[in-house]
Design a protein around this nucleic acid. Sequence first.
DNA 1: CTAAATCGTCAAGTCGCTTGACTAGCACGG
DNA 2: CCGTGCTAGTCAAGCGACTTGACGATTTAG
Lengths: 147, 147
Amino acid sequence: MVKRLDDNDLASIDHIGLALWRAAHDWRHRMRAELAARGYPWHESAAGEVLAHLGPSGISQALLTERMGLSKQAVQQLVDQLEVLGVVGRAPDPHDGRAKRIVLTELGLADFAERNKVKRLIEQQYRDKLGPEAFAALEAALARLAQ
Amino acid sequence: MVKRLDDNDLASIDHIGLALWRAAHDWRHRMRAELAARGYPWHESAAGEVLAHLGPSGISQALLTERMGLSKQAVQQLVDQLEVLGVVGRAPDPHDGRAKRIVLTELGLADFAERNKVKRLIEQQYRDKLGPEAFAALEAALARLAQ
DNA sequence: CTAAATCGTCAAGTCGCTTGACTAGCACGG
DNA sequence: CCGTGCTAGTCAAGCGACTTGACGATTTAG
């Protein structure tokens, strides 16, 4: 036996979970990097996640908290950052004196539009790489798993 | 119009990247929770990731660092935690006075075995949910994406 | 109309990682 | 065989992304 490699016993780590993990991170990385390159650098930080839950009609901070699955304090901090950057603003909710609505500024709306473009771009890259049938199969399998 | 929902404009967020993200996190969560439930709670913390790169024959800290894609200090801290817990130990490398080998203790070896069991279990859950063809298609698509 | 729940805020702490500064051992060209 | 530089590991400090705790201001329920 010439040489026993360190990782002889690591064949076991190459499972589908790892493949999923890598694919998810690849997607995330492409998305964040592309948006940062296009002039929306906050997508490189955690605050960018907020924008994934925020459309032109705005959202209450409480609902945002629920959707993001974080503590309300965490969400508050992320929104604070975006507010400083001028991407979102806070407006009082007319129907509830406690609540505030998070709304997109003009810059935020531009970000929203760009995000959709980039999403389609990366989806197309994946489709090109896999072919349309395999891409559809992937989508279907993931949807099935999510149920 | 009865009611305009907050998320009318959020249809765009439901893309394949998100599905991948969720699937990856589901896998990770099942893995960690199951291992924790079986008496290996460190898989709930970042230190558990170390064990994914560590087999019975051990590994040098430097190589581990390279594999994990973290700074050497980060890896050191994670290994420290596992050492305190008695899962791994540090042995001097006979061929290199600077290096130390990270090796599994008896507890670590039990963890290694359990990890493989759980991995197979969860893979089987996924296979059951998808059916063998779709599962194979998912594996193939993910492998293709990783290239 | 009071009691409880909800919305948001301020403060402090934890976890997972990073960068910086350092020591001990190895490698190699002169 | 020796110094110059590279590599393995350690110690310390700090930062980002969260958490928990405590709180005032509303709204809702009984």
